[in-house]
């Protein structure tokens, strides 16, 4: 993982859903590169407690339910109050409920749509405004390969992730002239809690079909986040990078 020279001012990075799984891997990456990281999630985890102790000046955490716009605003306001601005937004927070669409309840649909789409829209609206005022910044939306390929039992989740890819392209067009890049990452199957809905047989099948011969790790995605938010990468925007070990190639 690349690290910034000490003379470079730390970036202010927001990672939503940054308390566990992929989000935690992304938080770790930006802390390792010397940046200041603000994370939010619905609950505190042992990782959050550890980062608070190890990085008191570089890590900030707030509990928030981003499907509620007031929670999103309170979180962003707290980050601005603490660190003045935001350089990088990683829209990672997401939830999945598996099951055949024909059997899904209204609640199953609302929970997934409200966090995955509306939460991302709330955060992107709030943070892009701040970036507009400074005419710089990078946004990365974490979607999923299932938003492209589909997956039996993940219809609602797949729909929300496909929506994020559309948001990525639209925001890139809106904000490109102002020095703000917007890109997406579509991870494949990772060893995180989000893949716990898959049984061992399914996981083994995915591993066998993946050219890289393994499931992804959060660090695989975090590396691409770092690449997409490198200030030198101002000509790369509007793209969704698939990080799946070649599974869908």
């Amino acid at each position: 993982m690349s690290t910034q020279p000490e003379s470079v001012e730390p970036r202010i990075v927001i990672v939503t859903g940054g308390s566990r799984g992929l989000g935690a891997g992304i938080v770790e990456s930006y802390l390792a590169s010397g940046d200041r990281v603000a994370a939010c999630a619905r609950s505190v985890t042992p990782e959050v407690e550890r980062w608070r102790a190890e990085h008191p000046d570089h890590f900030f955490f707030a509990t928030a339910d981003l499907s509620r716009s007031e929670d999103a605003k309170a979180f962003v306001d707290a980050v601005i109050e603490r660190w003045d601005h935001v350089d990088v937004l990683i829209n990672n927070a997401g939830v999945a409920r598996d099951g055949i669409l024909g059997l899904a309840s209204d609640d199953d649909i609302d929970v997934v749509v409200d966090l995955n789409i509306k939460g991302t829209l709330y955060m992107s609206r709030l943070v892009s405004r701040r970036m507009l005022a400074r005419r710089s910044g990078s946004i990365v939306n974490i979607s999923s390969i299932v938003g492209r390929s589909g997956y039996r039992g993940l219809g609602v989740y797949s729909a929300t992730k496909a929506a994020l890819d559309g948001l990525t392209r639209s925001m890139a067009r809106e904000l490109g002239s102002r020095g703000i890049t917007v890109n997406g990452i579509a991870p494949g199957y990772l060893r995180t809690e989000m893949s716990h809905g898959l049984d061992e047989g399914q996981m083994g099948q995915i591993e066998r079909r993946t050219p890289a011969g393994r499931l992804g790790e959060p660090v695989d995605v975090a590396r691409v986040c770092q690449f997409l938010t490198d200030p030198a990468g101002s000509y790369l925007t509007g793209q969704v990078i698939v990080v799946d070990g070649g599974l869908t190639s």
Binding site: R129, L132, L175
Partner: peptide, 13 residues
């Protein structure tokens, strides 16, 4: 419209 959004953000800032 984008400049209006910038003005809005600047006023809030």
């Amino acid at each position: 419209s984008l400049e209006t959004a910038e003005l809005s953000a600047t006023l809030e800032d």
